[in-house]
Simulated assay, not measured.
Amino acid sequence: MTAPWFRDPLFGFSLSVILYSAGLIASKRFRWLHPLFFSSAGIILLLVLTGIPYEDYEPGGQLLTFFLGPATVALGVPLYKHGERIREQLAAVLGGITAGAVASIVSTGLLLWALGGSRETILSALPKSVSSPIAVELARMTGGTPETSATLTVLTGLAGSMMGESLLKLLRIRGDLPIGIAIGTAAHGIGTSRLLRRSEAQGSYSGFAMAMNGIVTGVLYIPLIWWFGR
């Protein structure tokens, strides 16, 4: 039996904000560390060690999620400021995003199939490179597990945000536009938020790629939805 105030939405909300703020401080010392990874791990560890049920934390987490909607819409501001560069190379940008979406779906499906993954696991993992709300709905429509899809999507975003830039640097990929499009396509909102903290231009390009990847992946999923929904 937990204390009543643990079930107050302000508990989960405050815990998330405090640990994320601590993660921001820690990321200045360890540049590879994403604040979301720090805060997520901290919340899980605290709940396990104290025995506080996730159901008590969830109302506060849902309250915080509610405010993510306006925050996501706010990505349109830097995109508007840097949109001319995208318009100048729109065909190449859309081609890169489409290629990234196809590569993500095909490589994930083939890898899990080769490892003996179940049909449900494969369908849950295929949309891992789009934002969580889209991934969850696509997994549900094709017969995957929404909870698994949401988890894999977050892990993909964290991995992309923490390792993506180093990989691009290793491949000698330079420039705000290529970096932003690559991270946004592969690591959705989590990668975009990290880029925005350092470069408004990269963050705006990443936000565009994140949105377009959601649309492209949704279109690519139409045959899967039809096939598995018969």
Rank of each mutant, 00 (worst) to 15 (best):
E58M: 15
S149C: 00
G203L: 10
G203N: 08
I173Y: 11
V106T: 09
E147Y: 02
Q202L: 05
I181D: 01
Y20K: 05
Y20R: 07
I122L: 00
L115P: 09
L123K: 01
G207C: 09
V154T: 15
I105C: 02
P9T: 02
A22G: 15
G60K: 12
F30I: 13
V77A: 09
F30R: 12
T153P: 11
F66S: 08
A125N: 01
S161G: 15
L171S: 06
S131T: 15
A101M: 11
E88F: 08
I215R: 04
G207L: 08
T153Q: 02
A187D: 01
W32H: 10
H34G: 10
P70F: 02
F228A: 09
L168C: 07
T108G: 04
L196K: 02
G23R: 00
A114E: 07
L155S: 06
A74Q: 08
R85N: 14
A211W: 09
S39E: 00
G60N: 14
V106Q: 06
S199Y: 11
G144F: 02
W113C: 00
Q62S: 15
R197N: 13
F37M: 13
L123T: 02
P35H: 00
D176H: 06
G76C: 07
L49F: 10
E200D: 12
A159W: 00
G180C: 04
F228E: 08
D56F: 02
L196W: 01
A3T: 09
T192P: 09
A103I: 07
L111H: 03
P178I: 00
M163N: 04
L123S: 04
M162E: 02
T98P: 07
S166K: 11
S129T: 14
T145M: 12
L171H: 07
S161M: 05
S166R: 15
D176F: 06
L79V: 13
S16E: 06
M1I: 10
T145G: 01
F11Y: 04
Q89V: 04
G214V: 12
A71N: 03
S124A: 10
T192F: 03
L126M: 02
R31Q: 13
L115K: 05
W32R: 10
S204M: 09
L10I: 09
H82G: 04
G96P: 14
V216D: 06
I190Y: 01
I222P: 01
S124L: 00
G95N: 05
S206F: 14
G157T: 11
G51N: 00
F6Y: 15
